[in-house]
Amino acid sequence: MERVPVLKIGDILLVSIQVDMSDQTAVTLQEDLAERIVATGCHGVIIDITALDIVDSFVGRMLSTIASISRVLDAETVVVGMRPAVAITLVELGLSLNGIRTALNVERGMELIAAARADEWVLTDGDEDAETTATT
């Protein structure tokens, strides 16, 4: 069975799905990722699906589950690179991918994670900073 590689780049885990995954491969990826988040202490996960020509309900559910698991493990998940045809199909299928953050490409995904982490920083970082953001 094929395995999807999980790369660590700085504080982020990058998963670039390049193959037409069987359901078993998807489940394995889900498990691998949970382990890697804990092992590396990363706070961000980017799943790049640029190469996927379809996302069906099984893969959609896997993405939602990964997002939920990583949230429990204090990591932010962003799904990036969804193709237009895939997005149109998902809408028709009725799959809304609730709770998943998305971005157009890896770069934007990284910005999104950085912004989310920074927001948390501000909130937990004493009153002074929190006040300055509130006034903007």
């Binding site: 020509d53 069906d56 309900s57 099984f58 045809a85």
Partner: peptide, 26 residues
């Protein structure tokens, strides 16, 4: 996918058909 490409379905239609096939095959 191969048959849909040969039948000249548009990219969106190919994607819809392959997705439906994936659901039903499962």
């Amino acid at each position: 996918r191969t048959v849909a490409v040969a039948a000249k379905l548009s990219l969106v239609d190919q994607t819809k058909l392959v997705t439906a096939a994936s659901e039903l095959a499962r």
